[in-house]
Every structure is written in structure tokens, then in C-alpha cells.
Nucleic acid binder design. Structure first.
Lengths: 165, 165
DNA sequence: GTTTTATTAAGAATTAGTCTAAATAAAAAT
DNA sequence: ATTTTTATTTAGACTAATTCTTAATAAAAC
């Protein structure tokens, strides 16, 4: 059973609190403000997070955003992705089903999908190469349905039956 | 049948030549020097390529390295990967079987593997999400066999039977 | 409440990658 | 073959993401 959003929020805070206590690190306002902010977003990058928080009149520095993200990754509450651009994309990771990503090369939107077969591939690789796998990254890049139909409508002289290029 | 290395080298040059001719671009020494250099390396990043060429007393600038890599990607002779660091990793791509990657988090070495099941997943995603997929990236990250056994030998007090955390 | 010290903010530094403008070298014209 | 034209190159300036530094701040310990 998936916990309710509010309950979930509390659980996440508890996880981070215990993590910080175990590491004998301080429970600062900034760290929890960042955690709270993150748990309202789907996918985000460090700079947007920083700007969003500034806009909401939190006073956080870039350094703290990066440092806290690092901590949240370490304790498993956040995942970092390198989706090909020159910056990292992050997402919350607690109690979130295993999934992989579809990135639209046109609108840059990120979609999620699940497929258990990746697990099988992982096991095969583990056995065949003696590789002790920690995690995987699977990204499909292409054009999403929305952008595809947008293109079809706007391209002048394109017929519905001929494929464009 | 896979062509011999020398023959292969020639083919690759021909592909690039024709590409440049089609685009009415110039066949410069620098462009071919970079191509030749690349076809002796497995995986590389732009900076190492630049330094290696400098060491061999080629005179190439960083800009030319980046620009030429872009051209080689465009004509399908090179692939770019974003393996999680803050820089791109490249590899030659001509007549090279489809494969994915294993990255060792310890020694940073990159291994390759093939699995046809990824194709199936791709088709499923294509159908279910109406996503027009151009390519995929699958990376497993973990500890390679070599590093694993190195650790086992060096960790003091570790027994062969108990798993280390 | 005071002291201690980890953490923060602001901005300097770094790093991968891109851009710019003068110099060079392919290709075209003579 | 030489000259002219212009794409390409080089070196270094620039940018953007991220990391580092240092004085100021605020948790936690006393």
C-alpha cells in the first residue's frame, strides 16, 4: 500500500533525520527546506531548484543545494541522472517504483516506464561478467507522441500517408 | 565477415570523405588525423584525445577536436555517451555491433555486452507510449570482477565466507 | 547562556565545452 | 602553376555547471 502524500512526506523526513543522526551531522533548516521542496517536484535540475527556492524567499546558496543533494543521494532519497545534456537531472527516489526513462529530443519532457525484463538482463550480465551491479540506467531518446503529431500538422505539404524523411 | 583492421581503416576514411564531399566541406589534415587517432582507441573523452594528439606532435586545437567529433557523430562514425561524469565519453561506431556498457565504479574501466532483449523492450515502449525512439542508452554500474577480487584480498580481517557489507 | 564547531552564503575557482577573430590552407579561378 | 577566395583552424576569451574557499552563522554541546 502506497502511503498518503502527507504521511509519505513525514516518512521521508524521518529517513533523512536518521541518516543525519547516524552520520552525526546537523539537522539544519536548509537541508530540510531542500528536501521538502524536492518532494513536490518530479524531475529537476540543481539550478532550477536553487532558483525556485530563491523565488519562494528561502535563503539557500548554490553550494548548499549541491551539498544537500549529495547527502540525499547518499541516503537514497534522491537519484541523479545524466540524461545527455551538460547538467544532471535529479528525482526523488524514496518508495518509488523502479522505472526507466523516455526523453523527448524535441520538448525535453521526461516520461517514465517500467519493464521487468531489464532485471533479467542485469542478472545475465552479473553472471556472465562477474560484475557486481549496483544500479542501471536505461534511457530511450526519441520524439514523444505529442511532438510527433505537432510536427505532422505543421509540416507544409506533408500528406498523411507519406512518412516525413 | 568483419573486415581486416587496415581494410577497415580505409573504409572508415572513405565514409568520412564521402560525407564531407556530400556536405561540400573541406577534407582537412586535422579532420583525418583525428579520425585516424580515434580508430586506435576504444573509449575516450575529448580532452584525452586532444592531449594524446598534442603528445604525438599533431597540432590540433580543442575547438577542432570538438568540431570534428561532432561531424563524425553526424556521419555515424562515432558515438557519444554520457556515462555519468560531467564529461562525454566517445567511441568509434562504424561496423560495430550494437552493444551496451558496464562501467566499473572503482577502476572506471568500461566493458561492453550485447543483449537482444533490449530490442524487445524498445519495441514495447514504442508501441505502448507512441514514442518514436531514435536510440537508447543502457549502462550498468558496479564493481568489475578484477576490482572485486582485489578488494577481497586487501581488506584486512575479511573472511572468504562472510560478505563484506 | 556561552562556547564550540559544523554548516552556510557569497563569490572565486575549476572544468567541460563553445565562441571569436585573425591566420592558415583547401579548393576554385586564373 | 599562381593567385584568389573562403572554409577551417588556432589560441585564447567566454560560458555554464559544479566545486571550493573563507568569513559569518547557527546547531549542538557545555
Amino acid at each position: 500500500m502506497v502511503p498518503s502524500p502527507a504521511r509519505h512526506q513525514e516518512e521521508v523526513k524521518k529517513v533523512f533525520t536518521e541518516f543525519l543522526e547516524k552520520k552525526k551531522m546537523r539537522k539544519t533548516q536548509e537541508r530540510f527546506a531542500i528536501l521538502e521542496e524536492i518532494y513536490n517536484i518530479e524531475h529537476f535540475d540543481a539550478y532550477s531548484l536553487f532558483v525556485n527556492m530563491k523565488d519562494k524567499n528561502y535563503r539557500v546558496s548554490r553550494a548548499t543545494v549541491y551539498n544537500t543533494l549529495e547527502l540525499l543521494i547518499e541516503c537514497g532519497l534522491v537519484k541523479r541522472h545524466h540524461f545527455g545534456a551538460n547538467f544532471s537531472v535529479y528525482e526523488k527516489a524514496y518508495h518509488y517504483r523502479q522505472h526507466d526513462h523516455l526523453v523527448c529530443m524535441d520538448c525535453q519532457k521526461i516520461y517514465e516506464f517500467c519493464d521487468p525484463r531489464i532485471q533479467n538482463i542485469q542478472e545475465m550480465v552479473q553472471d556472465m561478467y562477474g560484475f557486481d551491479i549496483e544500479y542501471h540506467t536505461l534511457v530511450f531518446r526519441g520524439i514523444c507522441q505529442a511532438c510527433e503529431s505537432k510536427k505532422q500538422n505543421s509540416s507544409p505539404g506533408s500528406s498523411r500517408t507519406t512518412s516525413t524523411k
